[in-house]
Design a protein around this nucleic acid. Sequence first.
DNA 1: CCTGGGTCCAGGAGTTGCTAATAAGCAAC
Length: 574
Amino acid sequence: MTNKEIASALRQTGDLIELTGGNPYRANAFGRAARTIRGLEDAVTDLVQDDELTSVNGIGDGLSEQIQDLLQRGSFDLRDELLSAVPTGLLDVLKVKGLGTKKVRTLWQELGITSLDELDEAARADQVRSLSGFGKKTQENIIENVALLRAYSNRRRFADAIRAAREVHTVLTDGDAFDRVVFTGELRRKVETVQALDMVVATSDGADHVIQFLQEADDTAPFDPDTISVTTEVEDADALVETPLTSGLSLRLFVCTPDAFGTTLWRTTGSKDHVATYIREHGDPGMHATEAAIFEGAGVDVVPPELREDDGEWEAATDGHLPNLISVDDLQGTVHNHSTYSDGSHSLRQMAEKARSMGLSYFGICDHSQSLQVASGMKPDEVERQQDEIRSLNEEYAENTESPFRIFSGIESDILRDGSLDYDDEILASFDFIVASIHSGFNMTVNEATERIITAVENPYTSILGHPTGRLLLVREGYEIDHDRVIDACASNNVAIELNANPYRLDIDWRYIKRAIEKGVLISINPDAHAMIELENVRWGVEVARKGWLTAEHCLNAKSLDEFEAWLTARRPA
DNA sequence: CCTGGGTCCAGGAGTTGCTAATAAGCAAC
């Protein structure tokens, strides 16, 4: 069990205590322990092994025992009791933005609401606004945010979908029952959230063979062998075999014969418009064993799957101008990362060493700035202390002339309400570079958000605009911005735009990357790592960067150490 | 439920501002 999983079980227990009207101090102890464990450097399992769990601040004998139960049997008595006392659906209600434990308890006690459906119904029936502590606005927000949650529940983030898809793929390819089993659809196009796991199954034995295989799969398979449906009237394949996965997603298998594999893969991969545009220009491609044959038949270059969105790829393929898309190997540094100086789990040295072990030649540290108290943002004296440590680490690294490596002193500066950065100029000037991001006051109009960001971009100390919309995929919508105006401002101020590679963010949205490139704005693929392992999140950023037509040439952290340093020097305020 | 000072119990609570209510709850990482 990971620290994260332990933390969420504890947090949930704290929530349940509050929902049932238990001792608030007790609830708080669980919440505090959850926060502490989430930010812990050591694995809780190791601490238990060494009998050192109670030495963690905020974990005493009681919590220590419950955590050990949690590790041994997946839960503990108090949690079980609370879970049986609270309707399951109430935990979904708690996910509605704007509702916390207090409000959810009121809804439960006063209106008997125990599920999202009941909440939605009550809000629409105008029953919520009259409750004490609620009002018209809260009732409207509930309706809106329940709808969002429902929409989210049908999709999965790309990273989660890939993990689930690999699991299924392993089952389907076990025993070589089929000629080919290949990802297709949104999965293959690398869309940031997917609705179904689509795969093409090539076999000469027909859909029945596929169904039989699913039915005979053993109990550990991630789908229900009893719930399989088959459609034969599909445009893009011989048959479509569908089954719900235990993860809640739907598995869709497009079945075809091996000699039609290329056509089926092509038809199911591209967006509707991508496929339609081809057919309009070149006619129906007919049956092909390989995808390449379809492109060859039209005399155009093979379009990478992630570009098949009907957004100029056909013109580029016809003219031989398809981009040479970026890959993980092109990245030479990483610039937006956290450490224990703010809310990261690992020390500056550990984080830098991890970057170095990944073959990178520079590491930018960007802990949170002073205003962001929830993430223990750095006060000026901590900034000074960190910069001293950076200097001494860099002296160490400088001794190794064979594989140059350098740490750059950055800050993830909050963009305050008025668009200003979070320190006075003297401190801002002490950094090698600054990532400017919004972390508070999300409730803005498009114009307010855009102005706020442009003010920050125009600040001479800003080098990179961090996660431009603040979205968390399938958790919350970001604030809306006018991307064109923001991109223009970045272009005229030589500010790069972050592609935050955290699988929850993937922000800037890939749909705007092409426009940024056209304006000459560099994209920085940043893991925003809060722990060593999260440095590897850049891969998700690279996936969607490719989708946005990004090449190494237009990527800030694909620059070599010397080039990156030159870029920073050139744009430093005089 | 935890910590800390003294062995059982008193006192505690990441912080701050915003929202949407008219005092308190929620959100930000």
